[in-house]
C-alpha cells in the first residue's frame, strides 16, 4: 500500500499515575490514533477525560507508561532527550494559558529568539543574529502583530495578542505538527474568532498538521477535519467532523453535542445526562460510560466495547451504537 506516513501515530498508548494508597489514575487508557499530513484533528471531551495528558504524550512532553508514539514514522517513545531534541523542531505545542507560557521578564523578541538560538539551522550551523532578526520579523507578520511588539514585554499585550505571540513561538522552527491545548478557551468570544481564523490561515500558508485539544464543540467544528471524542481516558468515537457531531453513533457524543447551549432562541432543549463524570481512579467496569448512559443495557456493565469501524472512517466504542439519523 502506498499510504503516506502519518505525521503522528499512537499505538495503544497508556499513561498511568500512581497515587497514594496504591491507587492508580489511568489518565490515558489505551489509545491508538493516526494523524495524517495536513489533517486537523480535534480532541474533545470534558475536564478530566485525559485529552490534555494525551496531547502532552503526543509530543513526549510527558513519557507514556506503555504503548508507542511515532512521529513521522519514527518511534520516539523511549528516545533520549538528546536524540529527541533535533526532532522537537518538527513538533510544537501551544498552551491554553497564554500568560503563564510567557516569561514576564523577557521581551517578546528575546522569547521568540530562544528556540532559534537553541536549535541549529537546517545546515547544522548556528543561526546568525541577522538571520534570527529576519526570522522574528517574518513571524510577527505571520501572526498579525507589528514588528514593534518585539521590543515589548508580555504584560503590554492583551490575551489575544499573547496567544498570537505563543503561536509565533511555536512556529519559529517551522514545525510540521502543532498540538494546541485549548488555545482559545481563555479568550473573549470576539477575540476567539480572530485566533480561530489565524489557525486556519496558517494551515493554508504553511501546510501544518494540527491537533486541537478543546472542549468547545463549535470551535472544534470550525477548525477540525476529524474529531476524536474522549471519555475517561479512552476514545469513544472518532470520524469526520460533521459526521461525528451531526450524526453521532455513541450516546456520549450525542449527549455532549445536545448539551451545548446554542446561541439560537428556541433550539431544542438539552438532553440531560445524569450525574457527573466518574473519577478516573475508579472508572466503571464494562463500558466506561454505562453509569450515565440513557441506553445502557446489562451487557454494557459487564463487557467493555472496543473501538471498531462502523463504516470506513467512522469508529465507535459502543455495543449499541445509535442509528444514523
Amino acid at each position: 500500500m502506498n499510504e503516506p506516513t502519518p505525521v503522528l501515530e499512537l499505538r495503544d498508548v497508556r499513561k498511568t499515575y500512581r497515587l497514594p494508597h496504591g491507587q492508580r489514575l489511568r489518565a490515558v487508557d489505551g489509545i491508538s490514533l493516526r494523524v495524517m499530513p495536513g489533517e486537523m484533528l480535534g480532541l474533545v471531551g470534558e475536564s478530566g477525560c485525559g485529552k490534555s495528558t494525551l496531547g502532552r504524550c503526543m509530543l513526549r512532553l510527558d513519557d507514556v507508561s506503555s504503548g508507542q508514539v511515532l512521529f513521522e514514522g519514527r518511534d520516539i517513545t523511549t528516545l533520549s532527550e538528546r536524540r529527541l531534541r533535533p526532532l522537537r523542531t518538527g513538533m510544537q505545542m501551544v498552551f491554553q494559558n497564554s500568560t503563564a507560557a510567557l516569561n514576564p521578564r523577557r521581551s517578546i523578541g528575546d522569547l521568540l529568539a530562544e528556540p532559534l538560538r537553541v536549535h541549529p539551522a537546517a545546515d547544522g550551523r548556528r543561526r546568525s543574529a541577522a538571520a534570527i532578526a529576519a526570522r522574528l520579523h517574518e513571524l510577527m507578520a505571520l501572526v498579525g502583530l507589528p514588528a514593534s511588539a518585539l521590543a515589548r514585554y508580555p504584560h503590554a499585550f492583551s490575551g489575544g495578542q499573547r496567544q498570537r505571540i505563543n503561536i509565533a513561538r511555536a512556529l519559529a522552527l517551522s514545525p510540521r505538527l502543532v498540538v494546541a491545548d485549548e488555545p482559545v478557551s481563555a479568550l473573549d468570544v470576539s477575540v476567539q474568532a480572530q485566533i480561530v481564523n489565524l489557525f486556519a490561515d496558517l494551515r493554508e500558508q504553511l501546510g501544518l498538521t494540527y491537533v486541537f485539544v478543546a472542549h468547545d464543540l463549535a470551535v472544534v467544528r470550525q477548525i477540525s477535519t476529524r474529531v476524536a471524542v474522549m471519555y475517561l481516558g479512552a476514545i469513544v468515537e472518532c470520524g469526520e467532523t460533521d459526521t461525528v457531531l451531526h450524526t453521532p453513533a455513541h450516546p456520549y457524543t450525542a449527549a455532549l453535542t445536545a448539551a451545548v447551549p446554542r446561541p439560537v432562541v428556541g433550539a431544542p432543549p438539552a438532553m440531560l445526562l445524569r450525574g457527573d463524570v466518574p473519577s478516573p481512579v475508579n472508572r466503571p467496569a464494562g463500558c466506561r460510560f454505562h453509569t450515565r448512559c440513557p441506553q445502557a443495557q446489562a451487557r454494557c456493565s459487564a463487557e467493555e466495547p472496543a473501538l471498531r469501524a462502523l463504516r470506513p472512517g467512522h469508529e465507535v466504542a459502543c455495543h449499541y451504537p445509535l442509528p444514523p439519523a
Partner: peptide, 11 residues
C-alpha cells in the same frame, strides 16, 4: 463547569 453539567445547572 463541563457542558453536560452546565446543561443540568441551567435546567
Amino acid at each position: 463547569l463541563d457542558v453536560t453539567v452546565q446543561a443540568q445547572i441551567l435546567d
